[in-house]
Design a protein around this nucleic acid. Sequence first.
DNA 1: TATGCTATTATCGTTTTTCAATAATTTTTA
DNA 2: TAAAAATTATTGAAAAACGATAATAGCATA
Lengths: 70, 70
Amino acid sequence: MIRVNLDVVMAKKHIGAKELAERIDLTPANLSILKNNRAKAIRFTTLEALCRELDCQPGDILEYVPEEEG
Amino acid sequence: MIRVNLDVVMAKKHIGAKELAERIDLTPANLSILKNNRAKAIRFTTLEALCRELDCQPGDILEYVPEEEG
DNA sequence: TATGCTATTATCGTTTTTCAATAATTTTTA
DNA sequence: TAAAAATTATTGAAAAACGATAATAGCATA
């Protein structure tokens, strides 16, 4: 499972979803999908804009969480 | 710019493109596109499979490289 | 040289998913 | 309580992954 830790990075940078959405030129609705782990993919242009505006690396945003076996 | 450092991780793990492609259930052709920085997006299912088989994190594979200003 | 093996590159068609636009609802905050 | 912010859902268009396939390149080794 790939976990999107956008909320953590946003909190560290003290930036809200509305402002971040504006800065990366994405609608707040679509940023919310990403932020709340409902996206199934990400374009590199979007990931790049996020890293640029949040001054971070992809590894700060994306995390691989091994599934526990059923 | 988002750089895909798959070649580095693969070298560390001593695994070839053919075997990795088989393990993550992707054609060698499509893995090559990703590995050589010609992909424009990535599905989380693919990123997850890569992290699982390479025993690594997204941050090992994806790197944000700030563009130098022209 | 010749022969495999691996990797890369390219094209086509299908499927998946992002994303904008929009609206409704919920949550948070002043 | 009212306003602002955030979430959720829907629709449609555009982008891109991906499989299948084939051609080509690189690189060993006999």
